[in-house]
Amino acid sequence: MFDKIIDGFVKTFIAEDRYKMFLNGFWNTIQIAFVATIIGVIIGAIVAIIRVFHKQTGKLVILDKICEIYTTVIRGTPVVVQLLITYNIIFVWSTQAVLIGMIGFGLNSGAYVAEIMRGGINAVDIGQTEAGRSLGLSSFTTMKSIVLPQAIKNVLPAIGNEFISLLKETSIIGFLGVIDLTKAAERVISRTMNVYFPYISIALVYLAVVYGLSYLLKLLERRLAKSDR
């Protein structure tokens, strides 16, 4: 029994330097999740601001419509389908699957972040905007320095959840042939026929990363909460 465990461990990680496959997969997962998160936040913030600005002023009609269609389409279709379309149709000339994964997941995440942020911005009392504008600040400065900081503080837990789901969702990037953590486990299994070690160990890795991420978010939340003692 004990021998079997040792044997499984050796076969999974040590034989033929297979731990390198896991490391490589882990690196791809982290890379994709990290860049996609940044793309998602940028797109999400821009879309949210456009939509709120449109609602407040009635300007930017066309941009607002584009943003609305974007969120509807992204939220209404599975992320796998979006990735396949991005890879096989939009970027058909490119084989940079990792890069396309970043873009695909970023676009996907952007729609969710946008809706979260829009809710967060709308939840900030209109009096804050009025106070900012009444001091002579431009609508841009008021949004950037007065409304957004409060909105972000309110939506941070929801955005954190979004990051966490994004990290876990990247496990389907194998559809594009990228060797991420999950795909690495499958590759190893196809050689060793041992399913326990690869699957359990990658589950633990995901768990550890998510746990670390939650911890960081909690620290950030606590820092931002210093004004409501």
Partner: peptide, 8 residues
């Protein structure tokens, strides 16, 4: 309602 900026 004062509308002070709560984060400052």
């Amino acid at each position: 309602h004062f509308n002070l900026f709560p984060h400052m």
